[in-house]
Design a protein around this nucleic acid. Structure first.
Lengths: 279, 279
DNA sequence: AGGATTGATACCCGGCGGGTATCGCCGCGT
DNA sequence: ACGCGGCGATACCCGCCGGGTATCAATCCT
């Protein structure tokens, strides 16, 4: 099976429409129809049920969509990492959520830079939930993840840090005088609806709260009195003076992990992981 | 990057010889040379250093070999699982080491079969260390692994069982009267050298012991008085009468895991994992 | 009933993958 | 030192296949 065939199939399977898929792929519709038919013939498997009105996936088609996306990510990762290995640029790209673990990250980078043989590390900040994709398709080599917010499924990891969570409120809010709060109390604060985070596909659920992509945006919106949130206590290190925090003992404990694709143990990565575990 | 290009490059990188690689691929040498050159041109990266006497990998070439093999496995897995999803055959292939965890496996299969909506499960037995490859390239969907013998890197897992280990000796051997043994004592038994296991590439280290591929072979050789071994205590359930066991308290504890590729949560697999955790 | 939408089919063309023949380079043997 | 042999690169040709346009066929919506 060639990656071209896989790309074509994934496009059709996602769009559920040959014409739109062809447009997205930058080719005409007839060659696409033919390519899919040929793929089905070669596999000996019907992947799509087409009527002239709708295209639906068969069970086997659903399997190929799921597995094929992972395979295409792997191919893309191979290509990107090869290109990066050659163009002597940063030999390691670390990705983490904007506005999270900044203190830990600074310590990690300092500790690694002090090691003999340390290479340049590119730090890339992204929105919540984007790390996995970046790591999977080779745009990044290593990530800081936060359980239970992120999922570490399919990666190698080491635990770096665990911590409780605190509610972040605008300074002067009446509840800032309380010694602690419960999750239920925070969720019920009048006029401060909880923010809405993007789903895996990038869309946002409905609700009263503001849409946010990362912690930096979130903290700014809290300062503006538009929302509130329960975050790991380490955010206190990077708070402006207009924000206050109150412990939330019944919030789930947050575990910070360093994560990397399981098979890619380069020398540089091994050094960084070692430095991280010694923090 | 097309999978054909990747396959060609991997062949050359492994053989370090264009002629042999071409032969292995079933094509002539000139098209192979051209394909590699074209790949390098498209990537903008030199992958191989060739003199007319030797072919060596550049750093980028080493990266592409490592990442490319993983990517090819992923593509192959997508193809195999798609084909299997269509040809209504066994909808789940479970792989485990021959001669290991047989009791646990029987219980698991019984428990799962009793669930509503259970599908046919194919059990495949393999040699030590072969499970990972089978799982990675789609020949199997789920495996029983044994830490610390196997590596669970890159898979999702659930712990099923932990146990100590015992030395397995021919019945009547003088040491079978001892209440327990140490690792050092077992390794030093005169005339019973420890067996040699295959390395990742399939070759065997040098040494006096017999070559073995799985526990079934191993147990037979022990019965013949050719070797001895330290194995999880659950092997006692499947021993012939010509074998005896002695606990080895200082051997590492063995953990039995059920493992599966992280992204492939089919309905059938989820049911099997659930049944396994409830054992 | 008829037009619109959408996937399949028919047919053509150009490029690319694969083949054979041969060259150029280098190490080695006598 | 010269020549031979091994190996990768180059040159050139052919046939297939991927991509394009034109059109058909089936279905749904007025």
């Amino acid at each position: 099976m060639e990656t071209r065939e896989l790309r074509y199939f994934v496009a059709v399977a996602q769009e559920r429409h040959f014409g739109r898929a062809a447009q997205r792929l930058g080719i005409a519709q007839p060659p696409l129809s033919r390519a899919i038919a040929q793929l089905e013939r070669r596999l000996g498997v019907t992947l799509l049920e087409r009527t002239s009105r709708a295209v639906t996936l068969t069970e086997a088609g659903a399997v190929l969509l799921r597995e094929g996306r992972a395979a295409l990510d792997a191919v893309e990762a191979a290509e990107r990492r090869t290109r990066r290995a050659a163009t002597g640029g940063p030999s390691l790209v670390l990705v983490t959520k904007a506005g999270a673990s900044s203190e830990l990250l600074a310590k990690l980078l300092d500790a690694y830079a002090a090691e003999p043989g340390a290479v340049a590390i590119d730090v890339q900040l992204c929105g919540v939930g984007e790390q996995e994709g970046l790591l999977r398709d080779g745009r990044a080599d290593v990530a800081l993840l936060h359980l239970p917010y992120d999922s570490a499924v399919g990666f190698d990891t080491e635990v770096l840090h665990t911590e409780g969570q605190v509610a972040v409120l605008p300074a002067g809010h009446p509840l800032t005088t309380r010694p602690h709060l419960t999750m239920a109390e925070v969720a019920a604060i009048p006029d401060l609806p909880m923010p809405r985070w993007p789903r895996r596909d990038g869309s946002y659920p409905d609700g009263p709260g503001p849409e946010v992509r990362d912690n930096a945006q979130l903290l700014q919106l809290i300062g503006l009195g538009r929302t509130t949130a329960v975050l790991p206590e380490s955010v206190r290190a990077s708070l402006q003076r207009d924000l206050a925090t109150v412990p939330v003992p019944d919030a789930p404990t947050v575990t910070t992990l360093i994560a990397w694709p399981p098979h890619s143990r380069s020398r540089a990565l091994a050094g960084l992981v070692l430095a991280a575990t010694r923090l």
